[in-house]
């Protein structure tokens, strides 16, 4: 080796034998691990293109504006799209203020004691509860009504949009609160201290300084939660939204169905025509979910602030 450097050829350190084998193995492992990483992505891409090829031809204005039907070619998404819009609107109206309020309470106003700790722990545990459990909760409490020792705590709502929205609100509340708490924590303490030092009350500090700084993060979390609620099927089937609806929803107290449930319905029917309908419905659903996710990403990137 020293001879090589004396004669001016470039110095190279090349492993031989056992060490070379270990290095070769290590270099190969990069590609094995990379392929393993990409495998799931490819599986999903393959499945998605299969669905798009299958359902593309069915996608038309008629498909979006026809009521469900026994004949695959006449069936459409009209009632499920409308039910979906009503449901998501109601969920947003209820879940967003509740989530932001809870997060503000936990982060800014709650005294630091065992009860607040319990509330925090409880929220992280609720986030792991399966959606079907929320479904039977909604069934027992909102749809059938809830009596405790002879007192009616919740009236029976039946399988209505309101019952569905309440169920989904409870379901997405934990993840929305967690995201909001994270966003509020990103606002540096110096902002809070500065505001308080200048004589602002705690609420003025929160309203004028904490919230404006945390809103992009909160919005991101809220939109992702909405996307999850929009794709939810099991919980809504449990509360009785698996229904044949051939009218346009006009109030929160009507029975309803949604696009994911319609997709489920078509998936379980044996005729090939309904399989095509399900694929077309999935294109609609995925467009919305991917769109919501993109909006969330854009908000996160656009309003990313370094304090």
């Amino acid at each position: 080796m020293s001879a090589a450097s004396e004669t001016g050829t470039p110095f190279t350190l090349k492993a031989t034998g056992h060490v070379a084998r270990r290095q070769r193995l290590s270099r190969m492992s990069r590609w094995v691990l990379f392929s393993a990483t990409m495998l799931a992505v490819f599986v999903l891409v393959y499945l998605m293109q299969d669905v798009v090829r299958l359902g593309w031809e069915r996608l038309s204005w008629d498909f979006l504006t026809s009521y469900p039907s026994r004949r695959p070619l006449d069936a459409g998404l009209r009632s499920s799209l409308l039910g979906w819009l009503w449901l998501m609107g109601a969920v947003i109206v209820m879940a967003v203020p509740l989530a932001i309020g809870s997060a503000l309470f936990i982060e800014e106003f709650a005294p630091r004691n065992w009860f607040t700790e319990l509330v925090r722990l409880n929220i992280s545990n609720l986030a792991g509860v399966p959606s079907i459990i929320y479904g039977i909760l909604g069934l027992a409490v909102f749809v059938r009504g809830f009596d405790l020792w002879g007192i009616t705590l919740f009236p029976s709502l039946g399988p209505t949009i309101l019952a569905g929205a309440l169920t989904l609100t409870l379901m997405i509340l934990p993840m929305t609160i967690i995201a909001s708490v994270e966003a509020i924590r990103q606002v540096p303490p110096s902002i809070r201290d500065g505001s308080l030092a200048l004589g602002a009350t705690q609420w003025q500090t929160v309203w004028h300084h904490i919230l404006p700084g945390a809103i992009p993060g909160i919005m991101t979390g809220v939109i992702l939660a909405i996307a999850r609620a929009a794709g939810e099927t099991a919980a809504l089937i449990m509360i009785g939204a698996f229904a044949f609806i051939a009218f346009d929803n006009t109030s929160l107290m009507q029975s309803f169905t949604t696009v994911p449930i319609q997709i489920y319905n078509w998936t379980t029917l044996p005729q090939e025509g309904f399989r095509v309908n399900a694929a077309a419905g999935i294109i609609v659903l995925m467009t919305l979910v991917v769109g919501l996710n993109l909006i969330a990403v854009v908000i996160r990137e656009k309003f990313r602030r370094s304090w």
């Binding site: 309020g101 809870s102 309470f105 509330v119 909760l137």
Partner: peptide, 24 residues
């Protein structure tokens, strides 16, 4: 009033847990 309403929001998650356990 605001703090009270925020407190009410904060209790919703506790109520959810109690309702899940009670109904189950």
């Amino acid at each position: 009033l605001i703090v009270l309403s925020l407190w009410l929001c904060g209790t919703v998650s506790m109520i959810t847990t109690v309702l899940i356990v009670l109904t189950l």
